[in-house]
Design a protein around this nucleic acid. Structure first.
Lengths: 182, 182
DNA sequence: CTCTGTGAAATTTTTCACAGCG
DNA sequence: CGCTGTGAAAAATTTCACAGAG
């Protein structure tokens, strides 16, 4: 497949595709293009998709359940190894292959199962507390779904997914009738 | 509040804050700083948060439920006006203030309630079909949570939230021990 | 010939640094 | 004075355009 075709599919400039791919090394063949399978392998390799990343989900309301049931984490190297909630009535309840555990067990869970990533799916008021506990337990990366600002030490990577923000971006484009970006 | 303080809170350079805010007009006072309330109003105004945007959620599995129950859409001007599912056994079931309706009613729902934004929360295989129906019904913007590529005509704005991608970005940083961005 | 890989140019974004207002 | 608003400089990103490999 040529950089032109890849660019078309990705909605970007062909030169950009070539420049970006060139950072991986020389995987194209002049006059021919790229072998898609090779590219996929090399990109997976470069992005670290060869690792297996144990994940803990904190908070099992609707969103937590949705995440716990989400197909496709496995295919990308993420293994959900624990489900944690503060709600005593939820603790002990089975969910898929796992059983909901108490937030108080977090330290042990993270240490024993070598959890690398924590997902916060609790209500906003509890998010900072959960983040602090995750950090204290030794988690290196946090994905926060709670609609609130959470702060963590520098050595911890934090990302936030804010559903209302996504809608806001959409409505902004709609309002301005700007041609759709990515 | 000074641009310095705002920059600190946002984790960016103070000059950038001033430059960005200057595009809104002249809302700061030299020697003093910005009046936060004024800024909030002006930004809300510029971003179109004064509108009210009717939203339809398609697919009421765990994720759809989570979205339907999500607090904070209202505060940002998004009003969920319809919940739609293909599953006959779900149709008619009440959820919050709304009742789940059939996908077949989509055209009427969108037209009558002036729906501007559609949220796709169905399994991946059904996503394209739902997107097509939303477009046909006249929705101008779509937020897709299904982990699959969906294509829409140019005049429709599409955004995608892919949970696995978010985790991938996290694990990439973790692997490279790069200082946390954003 | 075709299509990559890549210097160089163009463009965009970010930062600097300072005149000048309150 | 202190802090904004903003030209100008610096840095980063994207695109061009073409030598050269297959």
């Amino acid at each position: 497949m040529s950089s032109e075709q890849l660019a078309e599919l990705a909605g970007v400039n062909a030169a950009k595709v070539r420049k970006d791919l060139s950072y991986l090394g020389t995987y194209g063949t002049r006059g021919v293009g790229y072998v898609v399978g090779e590219l996929v392998d090399e990109i997976a390799n470069e992005l670290g998709l060869t690792h297996d990343w144990p994940v803990v989900i904190v908070g099992l309301g609707n969103l937590g359940h949705a995440l716990a049931n989400y197909r496709g984490f496995g295919a990308r190297g993420f293994r959900i190894v624990a489900l944690v909630d503060t709600d005593g009535s939820k603790v002990g309840r089975p969910l898929g292959e796992l059983t909901i555990e108490s937030l108080d067990e977090l330290d042990v869970i993270v240490a024993q199962r070598e959890v690398a990533i924590g997902v916060i799916a609790v209500p906003a008021p509890a998010a900072q507390e959960v983040a602090d506990r995750l950090v204290a337990a030794g988690v290196g990366s946090i994905l926060n779904f709670a609609p609130t600002v959470v702060t963590v030490p520098d050595h911890v990577t934090l990302r936030k997914v804010d559903l209302a923000t996504e809608l806001q971006i959409l409505s902004f484009y709609q309002q301005h009738r700007t041609p759709s970006p990515v």
